[in-house]
Every structure is written in structure tokens, then in C-alpha cells.
């Protein structure tokens, strides 16, 4: 049964539905662009426009945000936070998955069960103990406090295990016979063979880290450690004196990295979500 054999009316309806959903999803982003690249007040006037009216006005606002606030520093913090988290998740996840998927050791099933159980516990339940632990380590307002609690990802482990299980045992044994040490087998054979899964996991981790609001809010209360999400939150706060177009500019700047990221890795992300059966 292919789409060709359906009556045209269904095809039209399908497209109409898809386009409506796309419009609903895209409009807020477009509105954001529209507000930024317009003279102040214009988009919310009695005669609103649905297209940008003044590029220079938008550039001015962007310059204002980047120069007058600590937005660039927040960008740096967020980027570092994301990159370190990705590195940590990939290293720890792949090392653990390598052992869980390809080798037998005492207590393997039990340990794996405990890790999987942690998938079922909502973040809200663990966030207070995690905060207390981080605080006792003296890691509040530090990069390690931001990053380390997030690097052991049960979800990432689960996903990588599924992948590594598909590596033929022959290949691991061949590498052992070729004189590769345990770590060399991991590094030269297992890791390259699940590179697709690693890329997917990196993308999902980036999206999640960039959009993470709660943990940075809790752990880094000092402005020097604010992430983009927190800074945007400040702009949006009820007592902020910013006009709506300045707030929108901050929002747009915060949304650009994930948007670019999505456009570049679109196919991988869709594959990854389909592959992991979750939306990250």
C-alpha cells in the first residue's frame, strides 16, 4: 500500500495538516524575528506587520544586548557547559556500555538493573540530594558543579548498550587475538563502530543541556556563572524594565545555536529520535 493509491483528497488533507502544524510551530520563531527587526513598538501597534520592517533597528538591538549585558559571557558558559557535558556523557556512557554490552562480570545484571531504574525516577526527586551533594563538595557556582551531575546519563548508557550489543563478538575476539588490550579494543573497535550512536547522543545531549534551566538556576546563583537560559530568564522576569523587543532579541540570540544545530544535524536528530524511541 503506497501513498499513490490513496485518493487525492487524503493527500491534500495530509499536507494541509502537516502545513498547519508547521505553521503553529514556526510562527513564534517568525514572530520573534519580526519583533526584533522592527522599529520599537511597531509589531505591537494597532497596525502590526508580519514581516521585518527595519534591519538596522534589529542590529542595534543585538549590539545593545551583546555590549550592554553579560550575554556573551553567558554564551561562553552555556557552550562550555554543553561541550563538557557532551564529552562526559560520551566518555562515561561508552566506557560503561562497552563493559555492559560485551563482557560478563559478576553483578552485571544487578548493576544494569539499578542504572535502568534510575531512568524511572523523575529529576525533581533527585534534584535536592544532588544539590546537597554538590554543595557539600563546594561546587556551587563552579563549572564542575554544573557539569558533573549530568555526565552519568542512564539514557545515554541504555542507548549505547543497545548499539554495542550489535557488534559481532568475532570482531572483539579478532582484536584480542591481534594483540589489542582491553582499552585498545574499546578505542579502536567498539568506539568507531558505534560512532553513529555517539553522534546522535551528542546531539540529544546538546539540545538537552542548552535548554536546561532548572539545574543551572539551582547550582549557579552568581551572575558570573549564569547560562544563556538564566540570562534570558532575567530579561523575562516580571520586574524587568526591558521593552518587549529587547526581551525578544535576547530570546532570539538564545535560540540561534539550537536552531542552527538543528538545521545542520536535522537528519541525524530525526534518526536519533526514531532510533532511541524517545525525544531526549
Amino acid at each position: 500500500m503506497t501513498g499513490m493509491s490513496l485518493p487525492p483528497i487524503w493527500t491534500i488533507l495530509k499536507w494541509a495538516l502537516a502545513l498547519s502544524i508547521a505553521a503553529v510551530a514556526l510562527f513564534p520563531i517568525w514572530w520573534m524575528v519580526n519583533v526584533v527587526f522592527a522599529l520599537p513598538g511597531e509589531p505591537v501597534s494597532l497596525n502590526p506587520r508580519l514581516w521585518p520592517t527595519s534591519i538596522p533597528a534589529g542590529i542595534d538591538k543585538i549590539r545593545l544586548i551583546l555590549t550592554e549585558t553579560d550575554f556573551l559571557r553567558a554564551y561562553g558558559i552555556s557552550l562550555l557547559y554543553a561541550v563538557l557535558t557532551i564529552a562526559g556523557v560520551l566518555i562515561i556512557g561508552s566506557l560503561a556500555a562497552f563493559e555492559f554490552a560485551l563482557f560478563d562480570f559478576p553483578g552485571r545484571k544487578l548493576l544494569f538493573g539499578i542504572v535502568m531504574l534510575s531512568l524511572m525516577v523523575p529529576t525533581a526527586v533527585t534534584i535536592i540530594p544532588t544539590y546537597l551533594l554538590t554543595s557539600q563538595l563546594g561546587w556551587l557556582n563552579t563549572m564542575q558543579g554544573l557539569v558533573i551531575p549530568g555526565v552519568a546519563s542512564a539514557f545515554g548508557l541504555f542507548m549505547l548498550i543497545q548499539f554495542m550489543r550489535a557488534i559481532p563478538m568475532d570482531m572483539i575476539e579478532a582484536a584480542r587475538l591481534d594483540g589489542a588490550s582491553h582499552f585498545q579494543v574499546y578505542w579502536h573497535v567498539a568506539l568507531p563502530l558505534c560512532s553513529n550512536a555517539l553522534v546522535t547522543l551528542a546531539i540529544l545531549t546538546f539540545m538537552q543541556t542548552w535548554g536546561n534551566y532548572m539545574w543551572p538556576l539551582i547550582v549557579s546563583s552568581r551572575p558570573e556563572m549564569y547560562t544563556v537560559g538564566q540570562v534570558v530568564g532575567l530579561f523575562n522576569s516580571p520586574l524587568s524594565h526591558q521593552t518587549v523587543d529587547t526581551v525578544m532579541t535576547a530570546n532570539l540570540l538564545a535560540a540561534i545555536p539550537p536552531l542552527l544545530f538543528f538545521l545542520i544535524f536535522q537528519r541525524k536528530i530525526v534518526e536519533g529520535i526514531a532510533m532511541s524511541g524517545t525525544k531526549g
Binding site: 559481532p168 568475532d170 570482531m171 575476539e173 579478532a174 582484536a175 584480542r176 587475538l177 591481534d178 594483540g179 589489542a180 579502536h188 573497535v189 568507531p192 563502530l193 560512532s195
Partner: peptide, 18 residues
């Protein structure tokens, strides 16, 4: 295994695809 002076050819060839 690697120090026994034996080399094995597997049924699946076990070549590293990458």
C-alpha cells in the same frame, strides 16, 4: 591469546568495517 603464536581466521571474517 595474542602471545601464543596463533592466528585465527573467522567464519564471519571479522574485518573491522571502519
Amino acid at each position: 591469546p595474542a602471545r601464543r603464536g596463533t592466528a585465527m581466521v573467522f567464519q564471519s571474517y571479522a574485518l573491522y568495517p571502519h
